[in-house]
Amino acid sequence: MVFTVSEKGLELRKTVEEISGQNIFQCYQCGKCSATCPVVDSMDVAPNKVIRYVQMGDLEVLEQNTFWVCAACFTCSARCPRSVDIAKIMEALRNVMLRNKQDFINIYSKEFIEKMIEEIPQMAIVAAIKKGVW
């Protein structure tokens, strides 16, 4: 069976590899990253699957919420048996979206402004903005 990857798919794979500095094919799909991810239950698809999408050059990966839900906790990266820095791949995918002017958070929305008024530590607010706004 032969898989064909679209031009755009190839480009996405290359961009993710460049931004993350990771070799996406180093992953052998064991699933440990997903087993260890603390927020996997809120993800559309698990972290290992996101990597599989990128390996296959499948643009649908960009429609999943996985990389937005990622808390950048480095747990997956610490435990991957193939030393894939998955946290960096999640960051690369966020950057693909953000550099394309597709923000995750609207900082002018009522919802977000209400958060600012709550007593949430500003470290959380700054982190959320840095991960979700270009």
């Binding site: 603390p38 239950d41 809120s42 937005w68 808390a71 906790c73 995750f104 958060k115 959380a124 607010i125």
Partner: peptide, 16 residues
């Protein structure tokens, strides 16, 4: 992880 900055956009994940 405690859920970190997901408290802003995904409180349910933090609760878990």
């Amino acid at each position: 992880c405690c859920g970190a900055h997901q408290i802003i956009t995904n409180k349910e994940a933090v609760l878990d």
